[in-house]
Design a protein around this nucleic acid. Sequence first.
DNA 1: CTGTTAGCGCATTCAA
DNA 2: TTGAATGCGCTAACAG
Lengths: 311, 311
Amino acid sequence: VSRALSGKGRIGEATRERIRSVADELGYRPNVVAHSLATNRTRSVGVVIHERHRPFEGSFYNIVLEMVEAELDRAGYQMVFSCLRRAALPRCVTERRVDALVCLGTDFSDDLVRRLRSRMPVVLADNSIPGVDSVLGDNVGGARRAAEHLMQHGHTRVGFIAETLSDPSFRARMEGYGQALEAQGLSGGMVFEGGRRRDSDRVAMRRLLATNPVPTALVAANDFMAAGAITALVKTGYRVPQDVAVVSFDDGELATVVEPQLTSVRIDRAEMGALATRRVLELIAAPESPPLQYLLPTTLTIRASCGCNPD
Amino acid sequence: VSRALSGKGRIGEATRERIRSVADELGYRPNVVAHSLATNRTRSVGVVIHERHRPFEGSFYNIVLEMVEAELDRAGYQMVFSCLRRAALPRCVTERRVDALVCLGTDFSDDLVRRLRSRMPVVLADNSIPGVDSVLGDNVGGARRAAEHLMQHGHTRVGFIAETLSDPSFRARMEGYGQALEAQGLSGGMVFEGGRRRDSDRVAMRRLLATNPVPTALVAANDFMAAGAITALVKTGYRVPQDVAVVSFDDGELATVVEPQLTSVRIDRAEMGALATRRVLELIAAPESPPLQYLLPTTLTIRASCGCNPD
DNA sequence: CTGTTAGCGCATTCAA
DNA sequence: TTGAATGCGCTAACAG
């Protein structure tokens, strides 16, 4: 029966058909747990997010999660979701409940990742560590492009706002911003941080508005900061984009909800999830495959907040 | 060894200790798959979302998911995430990979839910079907309260906007709105639908702005519609809240991002996830327990969009 | 209280 | 090509 239904091992076509027809007559469904015990493979992949990302509301990982699940499903795999707590190995790993891991975000220490990697294939999404497979968005290049776009409008005093530079993604975006300005001989040092707090946007903007003169253009590290910047600017009497132009990063739901709508840099998160998943499935099939690092390109969508849109 | 480490079955304290110390000296970790095969319990729970909710970005289910995972983890359970495709039983169910199911949202047919229920414990979250355990927010009561709040300001022409009334949650909110108005002898029929589309807010508002006279107050079925309503009103020359007051539903991230900030009705989604999970664990322990239906209360947070906030 | 044994449902040998 | 036996790592029943 096993040979007939699994397709592995030699078996006559006639017997196979006979067994198959009886099987679905009886409504037979294979027991995946028994299969796992015999093969030592579970056909499931763990997805880990650091607990710091709770609450997940508004987190961009949702869309990644969704694609990971979809791709796994296509391959007949299941997704076990796990939140990394206390920097310990997730239970799904210690209990060998999954065949491989996709780790989302930058909140994993190199040490932890290597401990995980020593037990099973690991792919990092939105993160990158030497020697480990990863799929990362081009944060530096995207932010560089955002700043260049503003400079093409003639802006020379361009600021940058972010929640916190201790986040590697935001830091990379700041670096891209800085590179672009310095390449034009301008100052890339007008950086404003709000801190990890709900009113981070307001704190950063208070700092920005205290400078003199205020920048005429702004790169925001994400849509949330851009939205907060616009609100603060308008309240203070500045017009956006006429007095201060804004380019944002992420191009999420917020980008088209606020007024003016945001010109924003996008990293294709669906692609990030899909790529990471396909890679992790490859690694399950070929564990010795040398590590690959994908860098995802960005797209810039022009809307109203940068001031060059004819609409 | 099994008796020593599992704690079940009689065993001498001395032998238990001896086995324990050897076990962790050897770094022994139980194999959960073998355990599952022997006990016919996997210590994992499936969470199912209908594929219609893809993409999940901005979906309120993220926070529910998060709490489900947290509560399951506390109980030593794992979460298997699954997207319901083609109205078929999820693989995690047919393959008996999970001990029970939490279903999020209203997109499950009664028939499907009963088929699932016949195979394992099921708890519905944000949904309710007779005879099946469920945790549901008080959409009717919450919307009634929103409308009452506006009427207490003296409004008599109160409208309602939603993406689509074919969604049971939005329909329930409409009913609450209607009840409140009719209880005061007012018309609860100023309902505007935008349809399931990205610019649903604009479509609905175009319809609303075509009425004469325009309502002086608005109940929005969610924050997204409220944000769109405010944008459309301001563009047309109305002031919010002076000319048109708005009360929203959900109180999510958007509520504090848009200007003016939204007065909004909140259903505690974290509580929804936690309750559903605790209930599903109860059902695993006591499968014959009669079905329970939880109705979660709502809270109304007063901000600027309804016009009665002194700030 | 403790040692032994028979499955759980499958994959994979080895014989036939 | 096919039938029968063995074992994956654990639990639970049974004997001692």
